[in-house]
Amino acid sequence: MKLTLTTVLVILGLTTFSQEKIWNTFEGTRVLNNHSTEMLYKHNLEIIIAHKFGDIAGSNGGFDNFFGFDNLADVRFGFEYGATTNFDIGLGRNKGVNQQTQVIDGYAKYRFIQQEKNGKPINLTFVSSMAFVGRKASTDSTSIAYYKEPLERLIFTNQILVSRKMNQRLSLQINVGYHHRNLVTYNDVNGMIFTGGVIRYRVTQTFGLITEYNHVWNRVKATGQKNPLSVGFELITGGHNFTIVLSNGRGINENLFLSNTYSDWLKGQWRIGFSINRRFKL
């Protein structure tokens, strides 16, 4: 009797008192390329400038291309805004990769659950993003850019992110999602189901190591696409956040790197990328 009473009281206690929230599972709204569960503060505007260079080694890399610095793989300028504590919107312009160039992307992101000290064990965020390929349509009917109507230029990615800050140093994230291109080459699939994982380890207050991997389950082997794997580190200084990444993916936005990665780590086709964030209060 006493036991049940205390259990009831404990449960009541857990549910009625607002718990201390856990913040900064990740430093920024992106892990390396993909989204993190992290949100912008309300009224904060973030500007992200991200670059990825060409292959470091392999046939397109090496000294001739100064290890990739001579040819830029992708550039993205992003403007992201915390409309409320749990709702962000963003807009970006990408150079784009391969045949998908001049890409504009936009997203909406909602946090359903935020981890708490003695309450909810995880963060859960949903991101829906869309990209529009802006380039001139190709005249080559086998090209992925052979657009006959504007709708074919659209790419969508919806994903659920779940993360947990294990302690001050270690954060983990898994994500599952659906990626859809309205136009693909004849041997490819339009819809892809993917799962990803992230490990972040903070070595010091201002320095952290990160890996990020995404696996597409129904990838068509014949297309030669690869799953994007990135490793990197972050330098955290007040107001900016600087990440350096090594990745086989050329694209920066999820609408590009999930299906448009052809480079192979094992062939030296990985590159350096970096991103700088700056936050403003509006």
Partner: peptide
């Protein structure tokens, strides 16, 4: 404090902060 949104230099009462 993390989550306060007052400063761009947020920290907590954990050992990484104190070492810093």
């Amino acid at each position: 404090q993390l989550g306060k949104n007052i400063t761009a230099f947020e920290f907590d009462a954990e050992s990484l902060t104190f070492s810093f």
